[in-house]
């Protein structure tokens, strides 16, 4: 079981007058084996929520649990894919993918076999000897995906992993990720600000409020699986996306309000 649960979580950065509260009263659950996207206006604390689940930071108040156990530090049972791949530039593609398995101290033969399989799965076998700097953005994110799939984690955390890619590549990567996920159904928490992406990938979409962030609304995505890009042309997809767009728009306006009143005053 690898259910992610946040209970009444608050996270404040800094102290005194400079203190910023990123999350307040943030409660949500990602059921075991579900793909959940976390959506919200920029600066609403999406990434902070993900960092808490990853164990990169501690909450100021409230509980963060994965599989019933309190999260205290990062670990391979909670794999993370970062925006703008955080690969090791001094390692070749194959060694980047092998890093986590090596840390786990697996025998050399097993490492080789698993790396071979993963390279094939992400379609980068012929690029195995390249360095990250020699790859395109889309290829680098496929390596990032392969290196976390190698960990065989129960939980996958993704922080706008396709945000830095061009629209074309992003579409292909979403399709690719869906394909992978539909095969082994891990628990995924996927942070994004792209509406289409949020609906296309998810079983469930969580919409966050403006800062301090908490969950404004939760929507079930009842689109059939397996999903292909043409699902984005269906009326049901449009209905869901438009509903979410309204919710996010309200929050985005709230973050802009200081700006609007300033303009009104002058």
């Amino acid at each position: 079981m690898a259910e992610i649960a946040l209970r009444d979580v608050r996270k404040t950065f800094g102290r005194g007058r400079d203190a910023v509260t990123a999350l307040d009263g943030c409660t949500f659950t990602v059921p075991d084996g579900e793909f959940v996207t976390l959506l919200g206006p920029s600066g609403c604390g999406k990434t902070t929520a993900l960092d808490l689940v990853a164990g990169f930071t501690d909450s100021t108040a409230g509980r963060v649990t994965v599989g019933g156990r309190e999260v205290t530090r990062p670990g391979p049972e909670r794999a993370v894919v970062f925006q703008d791949s955080a690969l090791f530039p001094w390692l070749r593609v194959e060694d980047n993918i092998a890093f986590g398995i090596r840390m786990a101290g697996r025998p050399a033969r097993e490492i080789r076999e698993r790396v071979d399989r993963l390279l094939e799965r992400v379609g980068l076998t012929e690029f195995r000897r390249r360095y990250p700097a020699e790859l395109s953005g889309g290829m680098r994110q496929r390596v990032s995906l392969a290196r976390v799939l190698a960990l065989d984690s129960a939980v996958l955390l993704m922080d706008e992993p396709f945000g830095a890619l061009d629209a074309q590549t992003r579409g292909l990567m979403q399709e690719f990720l869906t394909g992978i996920w539909e095969r082994d159904r891990r628990t995924v928490l996927f942070v994004t600000h792209d509406l289409d992406e949020a609906v296309f990938l998810a079983d469930r979409v969580l919409v966050m409020t403006a800062r301090p962030g908490r969950i404004k609304q939760e929507l079930q995505v009842d689109l059939p699986r397996p999903r292909a890009p043409d699902i984005m042309a269906t009326p049901r997809f449009h209905a869901l996306r438009d509903e979410i767009r309204r919710l996010v728009r309200d929050e985005a306006i709230r973050t802009m309000r200081p700006l609007a009143t300033e303009r009104g005053a002058s």
Partner: peptide
């Protein structure tokens, strides 16, 4: 880059492995 250190943490690298395999090469 902080994300590089976080990557190592997330993949289960201990303090010594982080030093030798991540901090030193970086």
């Amino acid at each position: 880059d902080q994300r590089i250190v976080r990557s190592a943490l997330m993949m289960g690298a201990g303090p010594f492995q982080r030093l030798v395999r991540v901090i030193l090469p970086a």
